[in-house]
Design a protein around this nucleic acid. Sequence first.
DNA 1: GTGGTCTAGACCACC
DNA 2: GTGGTCTAGACCACG
Lengths: 123, 123, 123, 123
Amino acid sequence: MITLDDNNSNPIYEQVYDKFTELISSNILKVDEKLPSIRELAQILKINPNTIQKSYRLLEKNKYIYTLAGKGNFVAKKDQYEQSHITSIKLKLSENIRSLKISGLSNEKIIEIIKSIIEEDNL
Amino acid sequence: MITLDDNNSNPIYEQVYDKFTELISSNILKVDEKLPSIRELAQILKINPNTIQKSYRLLEKNKYIYTLAGKGNFVAKKDQYEQSHITSIKLKLSENIRSLKISGLSNEKIIEIIKSIIEEDNL
Amino acid sequence: MITLDDNNSNPIYEQVYDKFTELISSNILKVDEKLPSIRELAQILKINPNTIQKSYRLLEKNKYIYTLAGKGNFVAKKDQYEQSHITSIKLKLSENIRSLKISGLSNEKIIEIIKSIIEEDNL
Amino acid sequence: MITLDDNNSNPIYEQVYDKFTELISSNILKVDEKLPSIRELAQILKINPNTIQKSYRLLEKNKYIYTLAGKGNFVAKKDQYEQSHITSIKLKLSENIRSLKISGLSNEKIIEIIKSIIEEDNL
DNA sequence: GTGGTCTAGACCACC
DNA sequence: GTGGTCTAGACCACG
């Protein structure tokens, strides 16, 4: 379910966080579904439990999951995180588009680029 | 010309780098124009000369500027960096769009969002 | 493993870089093998950690090693750097041969010189 | 006769030195021919006379030219510099060939490479 | 304990 | 004056 990329220079806790936000946003992990326990996942990925702990705290902070002490970590309801999630992506998009404008590209040219990305991008 | 944002968690050398890529991309700094000397800029921003040097080395590596030892740092020709600059932004855009798709947004919805960003964004 | 030459006018960080490219090219340091930590090597060579870091950054830039923050620096896969490594040497050879031609040596004479170097050179 | 390359990161005095060693080695400047005066050349190249001075001192030290106080700088006899000139190039060649050996290339492969350089190189 | 960032300040080569 | 190199040492994020 989760795999790590050794050549990725991002911190491990962030990689784990990103994987889970993807799994949750795309509904592969469904509302109220239980995430793997910290110790279990740590063993599977052969990393330190503290690292998983950090990822889970971050997911909780951003409302992707909720924690029940002694029971585990569970996927939160969509509306808990969805808006903030999309808003944060919009913010990044906004910065990138600003960069393209600064480079002198016209609005039309930018939309053209975006469209080609959306269509080519078969993920 | 250049200001630092204390609240920004990015490394200082990156903030300086970003400011200059903007000034250069937007043609405010023109080809062969001299950048402030390392020491001078360090004094103005009240940071260490080594930090500026790191920014300038990064700018040089990415072909935004060229360095003449004993003379200073100068804006490079556009075609030296422009393509790689835009390509790297496209890459980031591509990742953000992928995130939106994963969140379940349709292509039409995404283009709508982009258009609203482009038009609102009056920079 | 690594020694410095006080009489060498090259910057220390370059000497360290050169030693490692040799150790890696000659397979004495093998793929994924860990390099000494920055602090450790700095202590052994009695130089500043920043200087080692500069060497390691250069090795990373040229794909000889990859860096995992908090874990260490490791030898990269051969194909990451090999081609560019040999190409850069060819470039230098080309310049030197050009110099000999300019001095009036014939092609035959040059090949003769090269052969004698290759055979004498028992490294 | 002499031109400078602004994009060349080599020190100017070295560029000037290199140009003259080429002109002298290739017999374009002939024995006992007078070099341009320091001030004259400085004006033409729009650089500081001290810089030319440094190049000429280096040429003199390496026996490419001889200086007559109050008269000028003149091309020295071939045998004054030729041997040391060629020896220094051999040294560089030797280092490059050593690098190729370390990378695992066989003697035969190296000679092959050299031959292709010599033949392609139409300078 | 690892690398990443940053400071304060020195000395050098070059112009 | 300029940038390039180097030192000594600090603080932080990460594992």
